[in-house]
């Protein structure tokens, strides 16, 4: 098994003909992902990367029946694109774009929740189920089909965790980048729930960072609901207060959201801590025995 995406995923790409979407769609197709079409308003009727381009998500849904959509449009259009996919009935939406205004996300999040849609991101690398489907911008080559589920707020840190678990032969079940924004579509807890139910996942790596209290909330949830071992690394132990560390969500505000607080809480709730990012793989291997 795996979660969210597999060989049966039929992917639509929004903002399909742009340069980033083109580059990453090529890579996804090469990885074996079934991209059934793309949307670029005004370019409907063309063929791009061997699949049809549509003017709207609704037209694409009627013609090629996608069951997931990935969004590469510029930040100012993401609210519209996500809500368009939602309105067209797509139940899994991944938004890669960075820089979406927070107040746009407040509205979007409320709407997708009402409709029972899973939104991953924005500002995220996407999802991959190794050997089955890659919906995102992660390098496919570092992944190995296996037993570790990875959830992360950061792209390149996810790649570190992936590389380390691949090098040690553990491999990954599914990797979900939930993104570095203050209001993510999907939380750590949402993904933890799915991974708990997934037979292929034997251990869960949760890569967090400073800012907010998502890791603390996840820790509480893990304590009561997750039977599988969880290994966590928190980035930003040396970050100063009050400064935004790249990601919009990575800021220690009013003394809240420090790495030390998060690590303390995770430990209290029985989560295994990788003290350093170099130890994520080794710690996972140790815990799995």
């Amino acid at each position: 098994m795996s979660i969210l995406v597999d060989k049966n995923t039929r992917l639509l790409v929004q903002g399909f003909t742009g340069s980033q979407a083109t580059l990453h769609s090529e890579q996804s197709i090469e990885y074996g992902t079934n991209i059934v079409g793309g949307v670029t308003p005004g370019k409907g009727g063309q063929t791009h990367l061997g699949v049809p381009v549509f003017n709207s998500v609704h037209e694409a849904v009627e013609a090629v029946q996608p069951n997931a959509s990935i969004i590469f449009v510029p930040a100012q259009f993401c609210k519209d694109s996500i809500l368009e996919a939602a309105d067209a009935g797509i139940k899994l939406i991944i938004c890669i774009t960075e820089g979406v205004p927070t107040l746009d996300m407040l509205i979007v999040k409320k709407r997708v929740d009402e409709l029972g849609i899973t939104l991953i991101g924005p500002n995220c690398p996407g999802i991959i189920t190794p050997g089955e489907a890659k919906l995102g911008i992660m390098p496919g080559s570092i992944h190995l089909q296996g037993s570790v589920g990875i959830i992360s707020r950061s792209g390149t840190l996810t790649y570190e965790a992936v590389q380390q678990t691949s090098d040690l032969g553990l491999g990954q079940s599914t990797c979900v980048g939930i993104g570095g924004d203050p209001i993510p579509g999907t939380s750590f807890i949402d993904v933890l729930k799915m991974m708990e139910l997934d037979d292929q996942t034997k251990a869960i790596v949760m890569v967090g960072e400073i800012g907010g209290t998502a890791e603390e909330e996840a820790a509480e949830y893990i304590k009561d609901n997750i039977s599988k071992p969880v290994i966590s690394y928190i980035a930003g132990q040396t970050a100063p207060a009050g400064k935004r560390m790249g990601h919009a969500g990575a800021i220690i505000a009013g003394g809240k959201g420090t790495a030390a607080d998060k690590i303390k809480k995770l430990k209290e709730c029985g989560v295994h801590i990788a003290e350093n990012l170099l130890q994520i793989g080794a710690k996972t291997k140790e815990v799995l025995g």
Partner: peptide, 15 residues
């Protein structure tokens, strides 16, 4: 490259 890895690198230096 990458905000998370940048923080992780700072932490590693400190470590």
């Amino acid at each position: 490259n990458g905000a998370g890895l940048a923080m992780g690198t700072m932490d590693t230096i400190k470590y």
